[in-house]
Write a protein that binds this DNA or RNA. Structure first.
Lengths: 328, 328
DNA sequence: GTGAAAGCGCTAACAC
DNA sequence: GTGTTAGCGCTTTCAC
């Protein structure tokens, strides 16, 4: 930077200003500085700037895995929202492990990220306190703060997993199904959806839900084996709520293979409204959630906080929507 | 850090050493320092460390979009390989735009990333030169350096897209197909596969391939409309090579919808060997590529370079494999 | 094994 | 509108 300053015949600060607040520099000086920058091929060191200004312009996000399309879309929208304001994204993957999440948070705090986006609300208390003490803006996603273990750290954007489970059950019950099953990943959000799903079924005076869990990360081909075991135990099952559209698509293929007609013999309901649910044959009924908006909203909340703009609310409920298609 | 030093009764440098090279500090001193760190809740500022040491321990990766499962898996493996050595990943998404890619590179160079992972080989010359001048380790992925516009910047890991296209064509020709079609995204790698595919078809003395391009990012539901147009123009088509398994699955659903039997009326070949290709009914023949290994290998190459370990080769060909299943 | 001194390349605060 | 001064919180180098 001092080379540039010398070349342009100005002082070092002026170069800094030309870069960061060009409107506070005269036209001629600005031109001279820019010429010098081009001439010397100068690339500003943002790390030094971060150290001096105490703002890294980096936000970190932790997801269980980026290989799950639903998280990928949230991250994509988040990255793009942040990029508009010159922020970059550090990506962390917890692999559904609380311990890995905690150690990622430590690293990210050490890097002095300006903000943090977490997935879910089941962080241990110690982590919550650490984050609150660190005084770093945090957005939790893919759920909503509420009673139980779902505690708010700072800000939140998502939807009610329990409510989504309830709505799925109501949809299937309204279609006349009386023996319902559930297939989901063995993790917190999926269990919350099951909770709502089950509550609705029991409230209708029906036998309990037949539930199967597959270890996360969910693979599309995990559904087939589940189906076999399920129908063996409960041949009366007529509807399955899959906690992921990909899982539902896999189940649909498994039904085709077994000659089970969908929805006549077995109704299938997905979750997420991924493009595949619309493309499938029959098209899959599902619960639409606003994945991209979740990332965008998380980014906006952080940016607002970072620019000291007053936030309307610390928590945003993006809701969900039952999409009725042909598989139920 | 000086607070910790005071608390532990040692100098500031000793704290730094206890953190970075604990083996160079005596057992007692180490214990004292660690006690002080816990007591004070000290979190080292890695940005300051980066500035002083001129190593950021950050690697940046640029992919077209993280919402495409194939890239997500590469990124996942890369992140995990880097994490083992204490490196974090900055994620950039170009949205298939060369301009966006160039501007991301500028930002990342400004952040003084220790390494860079790029997707593809068609970077403009100016970008290549800039990266080479910056003297930062770079790995290009999802292809191989070779003649044409595919120039090597520094290191590479991938497979031959042209070769994969050729192999797909040979597979279909061997099954007796004589009128072949292609559906792919309108981007460089897809075009290279078409190039190999077409070359093989023409070499067999057959009519040219019927090719359809969909704008990236590819969506699973993009295939259906393509199919209609294709069969209208060329009702003789008996096999389609889709440049993505998701696209192939979408095509399979479209065939079910139209009552076209797969593979009897139309053979479908996918690309990537995503889990869905095995789960599909009929299971999809496809070209397996080693997505996760690509990320892992890219990470290893960078880490080797960063720790000054001699690399065996600057370029790794991970190959591909034709997976024969029921859809062809 | 430990410490003192000298920066890393910037920005913040204040002066002019 | 521009410059001067004083750091940001570490690591490196060299000395002991």
């Amino acid at each position: 930077m001092s080379d540039v300053a010398r070349e342009a015949g100005v002082s070092l600060v002026t170069v800094s200003r030309a870069l960061n607040t060009p409107e506070k520099v005269s036209r001629d000086t600005l031109a001279a500085v820019r010429r010098a920058i081009d001439l010397l091929g100068y690339v500003p060191n943002l790390m030094a700037g971060s150290l001096a200004s105490n703002r890294s312009r980096i936000v970190a996000a932790i997801v269980p895995t980026i290989s799950n399309l639903v998280f990928a879309e949230t991250i994509e929208a988040l990255t793009q929202t942040l990029a508009k304001d010159g922020y970059q994204l550090l990506l962390g993957q917890s692999g559904y492990s609380k311990q890995a999440e905690a150690s990622l948070v430590d690293t990210f705090l050490g890097r002095r990220v300006d903000g943090l986006v977490l997935t879910g609300f089941s962080q241990p208390k110690a982590l919550r306190l650490k984050l609150q003490r660190a005084n770093v803006p945090v957005v939790q996603t893919w759920g909503l703060p509420g009673p139980g273990q779902t505690t708010l750290i700072d800000m939140a954007v998502g939807f009610s997993n329990v409510g989504a489970g309830r709505a799925a059950a109501r949809h299937l019950l309204a279609r006349g199904h009386r023996a319902l099953a559930f297939i989901g990943a063995d993790e917190a959000r999926s269990r919350q959806r099951l909770q709502g799903y089950r509550a609705e079924v029991l409230a209708a005076g029906l036998p309990d839900v037949e539930a199967a869990f597959v270890p996360p990360p969910v693979q599309v081909d995990a559904a087939g084996p589940c189906l076999d075991r399920m129908l063996e135990r409960r041949p009366d099952i007529t509807a399955v709520f899959c906690n992921n559209d990909l899982l539902a698509a896999g189940l649909l293929f498994a039904c085709q293979r077994h000659g089970l007609r969908v929805p006549d013999r077995l109704a299938i309901m997905g979750f997420g409204d991924l493009p595949i649910s619309r493309a499938a044959c029959p098209a899959l009924s599902t619960v639409r959630i606003r994945r991209a908006e979740m990332g965008e909203q998380a980014g906006k909340m952080l940016l607002a906080r970072l620019s000291s703009v007053a936030l309307e609310a610390t928590s945003a409920d993006l809701g969900f929507e039952i999409i009725e298609r042909s598989s139920t």
